[in-house]
Amino acid sequence: MNWIDKIKELTTKQDKSPELKKGEIKQILIQTASEVLPDFEFLAYKNSCYTFQRLRQVNNLTVHELLHIIFSHKDKYFACLIASRLNPEYIFINQSNIGLLNPNQDLKVLKHNTGILNIQEAYYFHNGQVETTKKTVKEIFGDFKIYGLPFIDRQVERLKSNLIIKRGFDYIDDLQIDTQKLKTEITEELNKGGSLVSSIKHPIYIDLKEKLQAVSGQSKEDRQLIPKTAHELLEIYWTR
């Protein structure tokens, strides 16, 4: 059986329960979250996405730990994203072009430990009926507990111990410049450069980036994220 046939089976196999009513999924999600992950509270519903959040304090900073669940009644699938955000403005921005401060990852990618997934593996499927949908939701929260929580726990440890992050916060803590002026100037450069951080030539950004690059003993992966991390740090500077 190929993956297309498997998806068809998952979405058409009937159970003995009623059809899922419009809006019923919200209560199923909230109820399941309260049972499996009681410290994650329902935050908001936007654009077919249900978001659950837990707040943690790290070094006097509030970390927004998030589970985003996108639900399609018509196409009978769920998609799930895990995120840890220092900047609250990123809570509802599910972009992948991020630095060390606001990471996110697809739950299925974490589960399979690879970004190369066929459609059957990339989504959670339901048949549009209450019983099967509840089972799928329990699977999602169970997977989040197994694969998602370690992801956000690792981010907490990174915020506590990563020397690039520490150097960056030391820099913005000592920075004394008009926040609105800095935001306006850097935002204008980004807008002109197609939102690419490589287009930022502001002297404060360049100075911060170079100081982060001077931190020794860091992994190649972390160093590759320095340009975006420098921008994230300045965003925190002008929003806090």
Rank of each mutant, 00 (worst) to 15 (best):
I4W: 09
K6R: 14
K6A: 13
K8G: 00
K8W: 00
L10I: 05
T11F: 05
S17A: 09
K22I: 07
G23W: 05
Q27Y: 12
I28V: 14
I30M: 12
A33E: 02
S34G: 14
S34C: 01
F42V: 14
K46M: 08
N47W: 10
Q53V: 15
V58N: 07
V58F: 06
V58K: 08
N60S: 15
L61F: 11
T62H: 09
E65C: 08
L67D: 08
I69G: 02
F71M: 04
F71H: 15
Y77Q: 02
Y77A: 01
C80E: 12
C80M: 08
I82L: 12
R85H: 10
P88Q: 13
E89Q: 12
I98G: 13
I98D: 13
Q105Y: 12
L107A: 06
N113T: 05
T114Y: 04
G115W: 06
H126Q: 12
G128W: 13
Q129D: 01
E139W: 00
G142A: 04
G148S: 10
F151W: 05
I152F: 07
D153V: 10
R154L: 10
N162G: 08
I164W: 10
I164H: 07
K166I: 12
F169K: 09
D173L: 04
D173T: 09
Q176N: 11
Q176T: 10
I177A: 13
D178L: 00
D178M: 02
I186P: 07
L190W: 06
L190R: 11
N191A: 00
G194D: 02
S199P: 05
H202P: 11
I206T: 09
I206G: 00
A214H: 11
V215H: 06
V215D: 00
S216M: 10
Q218K: 10
Q224S: 09
L225H: 01
T229L: 07
H231A: 11
E232Y: 01
L233K: 08
E235D: 03
E235T: 09
I236T: 00
